[in-house]
Design a protein around this nucleic acid. Structure first.
Length: 276
DNA sequence: AATTAGCTCAACCGCTTGATT
DNA sequence: GAATCAAGCGGTTGAGCTAAT
């Protein structure tokens, strides 16, 4: 299959986006939507390739993006979804409103994977298993100039008239936060996560077990048929784990990917995949 | 205060997939 | 059916930040 080059690379900017570029992109999409990413940069007066614009919008500028720390519940959900879906980040992201595949992928690679590895090692060493509290470092404050600028710009709010659907995630909308406020928000959120710790028996759905964290999630998300179906499937798995005599289902979950594969194959029930 | 090591995350790259001609 | 185009996806990288020394 022939393949067109991603973009004519000459004369196009690369690297970090400037606030001006962000503004242009947001303003353009607000007005016209994004029917054609390839043509968009030209029409918007941006010296970027369409791909870059798309990525910037999807991963950063989209108004419905929920920024800030991942809650313990969200991390749990990622682990579970990863168990059943593998590295299909977009599919995982589809189950987590406000989170991008890129973000989820980053979280997975930077600490969830590590955490699971540690837990696995502990379990292998007979070290009691179970989850350990977060050792994740305090997140840094919004770092890029673009981010800071955006946070000071209350107008980044897109309605459906632009051809872009906008969910109602308002929790950490950049529009109401300056840098310090955001930092504070992140710190309190982080503290909340810490308080919950992973020993809270936080089996999903955690809406009941951890209301503060659950508040971050769109309720409709938890009640959607797709998710409930999926959770039912996952619940079954946990039951099986409990039956198998593991003291901690959570610990067992991370035991062995082979185990999960086997479980899926044995059950012959691919409900989890059906949601895709 | 300066330096170093480790971590995070935005952005890029290349491939795949689906739609169109 | 083949060729082309456009969008989406997952893996990877590197700049910038923070914590530790």
């Amino acid at each position: 299959m022939g393949r067109a080059p991603c973009c004519e690379k000459e004369g196009l900017r690369r690297g970090a986006w400037s606030p001006e570029e962000d503004d242009r992109l947001v303003a353009y999409i607000r007005r016209h939507g994004h029917p054609n990413w390839r043509a968009l940069p030209k029409q918007a007066g941006l010296l970027r390739c369409g791909k870059s614009c798309r990525l910037r919008w999807i991963n950063y500028l989209r108004p419905d993006i929920k920024r800030g720390n991942f809650t313990a519940d969200e991390e749990d959900l990622i682990v579970r979804l990863h168990n059943s879906l593998g590295n299909r980040w977009s599919a995982i992201a589809a189950q987590m409103p406000g989170r991008t595949d890129n973000e989820i992928k980053n979280v997975w690679h930077t600490h969830l994977k590590k955490r699971l590895d540690d837990e696995r090692k502990l379990a292998a060493a007979g070290g009691g298993g179970g989850r350990r509290p977060h050792t994740r470092k305090q997140p840094k404050a919004a770092k890029s100039a673009a981010a800071v600028k955006r946070e000071a710009t209350p107008s980044v709010s897109v309605d459906t008239s632009s051809g872009v659907t906008c969910s109602t995630v308002t929790e950490s909308s950049p529009s109401s936060a300056d840098g310090d406020h955001r930092r504070q928000q992140q710190q309190t959120q982080h503290a909340a996560v810490k308080e919950e710790s992973f020993s809270s028996g936080g089996e999903l759905p955690a809406a009941a077990a951890a209301p503060t964290a659950a508040a971050d999630m769109d309720e409709s998300f938890w009640s959607s048929t797709e998710v409930t179906g999926m959770m039912a499937g996952l619940g079954d798995m946990d039951e099986e784990l409990a039956i198998a005599g593991t003291s901690s289902a959570a610990a067992a979950r991370s035991d062995d990917m082979e185990f999960w594969l086997k479980m899926l194959l044995e059950s012959g029930d691919m409900r989890d995949l059906a949601v895709l």
